[in-house]
Amino acid sequence: MPIFYQLDVLKMNRSVKYYFLLVACGLTGCLFQSCEQNIELFAPPEFTPVVYCLLNPQDSVQTVRVSRVFQDRSMFLEWEETFDNYLKDTTKRIYIESINEEGSRTVTNFSYSEKLRSDNDSLFASTDLYTSRLKPTHLNDYSLYVYFPETKTMASAKIKPIAPVHLIDPAIVPGRKMVIDPTQAYVLRWFGSPGTAYYQGTFHINYLEKKSGEIRSKRLSMTLNPVLEYPDEAVFSQNVTGTALLKTLKNNIPELDSVNRKIVNLDFTFVYGGVELALFSNSGINPLGLSDRVSDYTNLDNARGVFSSISRLHVYGIPLSEQSADTIAINPITKNLNFVSNDEEF
């Protein structure tokens, strides 16, 4: 056989092979195409699932907030018509699985509590609250599962709750009084705990207001900037300047000639939360903490939001020094608020 004929046969065989390969690919493509069309008989509504859950180790009732955020009003109305009512049947749709140190697992189901907001706001969101009896501990791991039946998706996240934080200052000690003075700062101090990275204190200033012989108790809150710090188990501190406290009084209490005021004492609330909450707060969209807006941070799979833990400490009745009462009475910032000095009659 001549050598050029052998080459022609080889070329033909190769082209036949390519032909069959192309036919096979085309048929396979058609098959997949038809499968895809069958599934599209049910078109899921388009929304962003949003889940918020902050476990509180001090509380025996925990809550999960579930939202569906629609970008399009017609989509929202269509979804509301089809799915809204049957979401109340939450059996096994929202649950937390706790895993203790020995590895044994316990499941806690959440039940529908209330609809938080159904009004059509700018985001077209539907928000529902679910509650369950559960007292978490920092020794266990917790996995949250939220099932969205419309899209047949499960949102989930896993955390270890925060351990208790030890607050050093402020503290109630016999004879110790807090000094509000523009020349010195008051220093908050605390020991961090494992998993904790979000800390925020609030002073509540209690004072009396006397008008036409009638005395009323008043309360003014001064929330400090959150401290987002890691690593844990270290001593943290935050300075609160005397000027900041005086300016809070000036900016929140009206100047009235006919009114006399007297400082009583201060209360202090200290909120601390997990690393996830710190990242969430620091994500830019939510600089002020939790809000109804969708965050750009999430630690949930298949949803946006946050699953973390939060706890609170309270210190009641922090006495103020006599020097502080005098400072508030005569300092140019607060002088016009008519607070009495230490030796003045109220």
Binding site: D169, V173, G175, R176, Q184, Y186, S321
Partner: peptide
């Protein structure tokens, strides 16, 4: 625990408990 740290000008003021400056003291 530390309870107070205060400054005055004279011994007489100290006996009377009249101080012009108190520090915010802490156990830490």
């Amino acid at each position: 625990r530390r309870a107070d740290l205060a400054v005055c000008n004279t011994m007489y003021e100290m006996n009377k408990g009249v101080f012009f400056y108190h520090s915010n003291v802490s156990d830490a």
